[in-house]
């Protein structure tokens, strides 16, 4: 029982760590303000769910989600990434909300507010008895791949130029770099990674509904990045651990002690306070960005 609870928490940490790494690529290293992270997470969740329900294997759902996320990423990036940085924040935030409206209103496709139950779980019949262990391994395997991918990406000429764009985009163009093109690439890559995380989320819970994809999810991931350490992949994983332990801990606590305040409210208030306090007093987060020695 306790073991299952721990594994359950570990799985959530893994899923959110993938999401946090993907946010870190675009927001941490490149300063692209994606306030609609939840949109890509939801695309991954819904696409693979619908494909699985239609009888497709898990991997097809996973890839389907990645492709759709890439397309949505392009659609958002093309009109906004040429403009001031803050327009992206507004447009992505809005995109997440519109997408949630879509899942809510297109009942023929998504069962609307009722959500979709009985989502097939990959290889369930093989690991039936120890399924949660298998799923934990699956999540951490994918997390490891995403982590290595992100590290390779950042410690490369590509990543170096992203960091330069973060410092001064105009000055990067002086050296013949098509910064618009590079920003689109990293935005699309991050969107794909977020979709993977959403797919893992949906197939783990085996149930999704539109009210799982509120903007507060986006800001929970932002908090992971800000307190863990912006532009440090290990840091944001630490952030994911802390926020998830905190979120699941307060949920757990509710069953044992009666708090004078609603735990859900308290949780969001604390997340908000953490964001403000870290931005004010510890903008680098707990683990600072690594200094590169210029070696690949």
């Amino acid at each position: 029982m306790i073991f299952d609870y721990l594994l359950d928490t570990l799985i959530y940490i893994g899923i959110y760590a993938i999401l946090a790494i993907s946010l870190n690529l675009e927001a941490g290293y490149t300063r692209l303000m994606n306030f609609g992270k939840v949109a890509f997470f939801a695309i991954g969740a819904y696409t693979s769910t619908l494909l699985s329900i239609a009888g497709m294997p898990f991997i097809v759902g996973l890839i389907g989600g990645i492709i759709l996320s890439a397309l949505l990423g392009l659609l958002i990036a093309l009109p906004t990434l040429r403009l001031r940085a803050d327009y992206l924040a507004i447009v992505t935030l809005a995109s997440g909300e519109i997408l949630r409206l879509f899942f809510l209103n297109e009942q023929w496709l998504t069962d609307g507010p009722m959500g979709i139950r009985g989502i097939p779980q990959p290889m369930y019949t093989v690991f039936e008895d120890n399924y949660i262990i298998f799923y934990a391994l699956l999540v951490y395997g994918i997390l490891l791949i995403c982590y290595i991918f992100a590290e390779k990406l950042i410690n490369s000429p590509f990543g170096r130029t992203l960091k330069a764009i973060r410092d001064d985009e105009d000055a990067v163009q002086v050296f013949g770099k098509n910064t618009f093109n590079l920003k689109i690439k990293v935005f699309v890559i991050s969107s794909c990674m977020a979709s993977i995380s959403g797919t893992l989320f949906a197939h783990y819970l085996a149930y999704i509904s539109p009210d799982m994809f509120f903007p507060s999810l986006t800001f929970s991931v932002w908090t992971m990045m800000v307190i863990g350490g912006t532009a440090n992949n290990m840091g944001v994983i630490m952030g994911a651990v802390m926020i998830q332990v905190f979120e699941r801990g307060t949920r757990f606590l509710k069953d044992f002690v009666s708090l004078p305040v609603e735990p859900y409210n308290l949780r969001i208030i604390i997340i908000g306070l953490l964001l403000i306090l870290f931005i004010l007093y510890r903008p680098d987060g707990m683990i600072k960005e690594k200094k590169s020695k210029g070696r690949l």
């Binding site: 306030f35 507060s216 800001f219 932002w222 800000v226 969001i268 208030i269 997340i271 908000g272 306070l273 953490l274 964001l275 403000i276 931005i279 004010l280």
Partner: peptide, 8 residues
């Protein structure tokens, strides 16, 4: 980001 925090 801080304004988001205040809002929450």
């Amino acid at each position: 980001i801080a304004s988001i925090g205040i809002g929450l």
